[in-house]
């Protein structure tokens, strides 16, 4: 009788541990996936940041009267490069700061590209056209990287917050992660003037 009881205990314990270890490993896996996706987002933003000096100097050659716009782009860039978010420390505040900084670059760049419409010579420039293509491609990559980041965060959050994983998640410090929301600045529609 006693041996049967002990056997039952052992069975229950092994079941518990195997279940636990399974979901624990899965949590680690998903956590790593989120980190990788985030670093990819940062890489793409960095890529955009690296393109800016080249773009600014090309535009400068054709549009000297647009100093203030060019200045704004460079300032936004230098501000944003100071803010980096560690993949292991994706707190909501940090994320918000990062998003804000990158959003400022986006809106400054948007203004810069809008004024280039006034310079047909610049638009006809092969070098500028190709730079613009790189910038567009990078924006597309950023969008794609963000989409994937959000996907991986969603998967992770669903895993961490569902029962019974949430008990173990709390125990091992797997917190809910923040998604990358739409950029600040993009929520207000662009003004159209005629």
């Amino acid at each position: 009788m006693k041996t049967k009881k002990i056997r039952n205990y052992i069975l229950a314990l092994t079941a518990l541990f195997s279940l636990n270890s399974c979901s624990y490993n899965e949590m680690v896996e998903k956590d790593e996936a989120v980190s990788t996706a985030w670093s990819n987002v940062e890489v793409q933003y960095q890529r955009r940041s690296d393109l800016i000096p080249n773009l600014v100097s090309t535009v400068k050659g054709y549009a000297q009267h647009e100093q203030s716009t060019l200045q704004a782009v460079m300032e936004a860039r230098s501000k944003a490069t100071q803010i980096t978010v560690d993949a292991d420390n994706l707190t909501p505040e940090k994320m918000k700061e990062y998003q804000q900084a990158q959003g400022e670059i986006s809106s400054a760049l948007g203004k810069l590209l809008a004024i280039t419409e006034n310079y047909p010579e610049l638009k006809a420039n092969q070098n500028f056209s190709e730079l613009q293509a790189q910038l567009e491609g990078t924006e597309n990559r950023i969008t794609e990287a963000r989409r994937r980041y959000n996907e991986s965060v969603q998967e992770y959050n669903v895993l961490v917050r569902s029962f019974p994983n949430n008990l173990f998640a709390k125990m091992f410090g797997f917190d809910k992660k923040e998604k990358y929301e739409a950029e600040s600045g993009s929520e207000k529609a662009p003004e159209v003037k005629f």
Binding site: A133, E136, G137, N140, R141, I142, T143, E144, A145
Partner: peptide
């Protein structure tokens, strides 16, 4: 896998 590269 496509990451959004290219031009259009």
């Amino acid at each position: 896998d496509f990451g959004g590269g290219g031009s259009g």
